[in-house]
């Protein structure tokens, strides 16, 4: 474990050296995600000036939901973005073999190979939104609430990574897994807003099937002492379960690769 941690640190510092070499790219990359989020947030702001609340959720409360999902997403974006390129950049080109002749776990190698700087922008937006919302709403921070915040972000990140892993592994079989991943990934957009604005089916989808809601709506409800908030404690369980399934599926894909080699 410590070996992998110190290896990751080494990978990360090397990657940062490259990023510093292309400083303009680093800044553009971070700005790009900020611009993407700013567009949606500005839209929310414009609308929420006109009405007092959205199904009982005020502007700042919505920002909390939005901020939490953005934080969870940023974990995935920074540390696991390379999953998207597994098929295109590694398997199709034969570059994946390089991971298999090295004495470290190939999934670790894949993830460590590229820390994605664009995720930093998402992270900053998420932090800013949560802080802004917390101050504006006067959230009384208790130990449990602080714990919930950390648990929500970490397990939210885990849910994102696991769902991406589950879908990206298909690139061991199909030429381009990106559409499949998008099909699942894009559902997180629902979780940018309080789930109460959606019909029941979408609530079930976002809670039990692709549980992005556990990363935003439920923990936000908990932090705001609203009903349904306690369901947020399910997030770590869901993340662990999905990560376990994702890793098993990865191993299955790896086994398939071992028998066909692309």
């Amino acid at each position: 474990m410590t070996r992998y941690l110190s290896l990751y640190w080494l990978f990360l510092t090397q990657r940062l050296k490259v990023l510093m070499e292309y400083r303009a790219n680093f800044i553009i990359g971070a700005l790009s995600t900020i611009a993407l989020q700013a567009s949606s947030i500005l839209a929310i702001w414009v609308v929420m000036r006109q009405v007092p609340d959205l199904n009982g959720w005020t502007y700042d409360e919505i920002l909390l939901v939005y901020g939490l999902i953005t934080l969870a997403k940023s974990i995935n974006h920074m540390f696991a973005d390379n999953l998207w390129t597994l098929g295109r950049q590694y398997i199709r080109s034969g570059g994946f073999d390089r991971f298999l002749v090295r004495p470290i776990d190939p999934l670790f190698h894949l993830l460590a190979d590229r820390f994605c700087q664009d995720g930093v922008g998402n992270f900053l937006v998420g932090v800013a939104l949560v802080v802004k919302a917390s101050v504006a709403l006067g959230i009384q921070w208790t130990l449990l609430k602080a714990l919930m915040l950390v648990a929500a972000v970490v397990s939210g990140g885990g849910i994102f990574i696991a769902l991406n892993l589950l879908t990206c592994v298909t690139s061991f079989w199909i030429v381009d897994s990106v559409p499949v991943t998008r099909l699942v990934f894009d559902n997180h957009l629902f979780a940018q807003y309080p789930l109460t604005i959606y019909p029941k089916a979408i609530n079930i989808l976002l809670t039990w099937i692709v549980p992005y809601g556990l990363a935003s709506f439920y923990p936000a409800s908990y932090l705001l002492d609203r009903s349904l908030g306690n369901l947020a404690w399910a997030a770590p369980v869901a993340a662990a379960l999905l990560l376990f399934l994702g890793y098993r599926f990865w191993q299955f894909g790896l086994k398939h690769y071992g028998s066909t080699g692309t």
């Binding site: 292309y22 303009a24 790219n25 553009i28 990359g29 700005l31 790009s32 995600t33 900020i34 611009a35 993407l36 989020q37 700013a38 567009s39 664009d118």
Partner: peptide, 14 residues
């Protein structure tokens, strides 16, 4: 700049 992807996302975002 060589970072084309980021520039594209930036413009799309705006």
């Amino acid at each position: 700049t060589t970072e084309v992807w980021g520039l594209g996302v930036l413009i799309f975002g705006m």
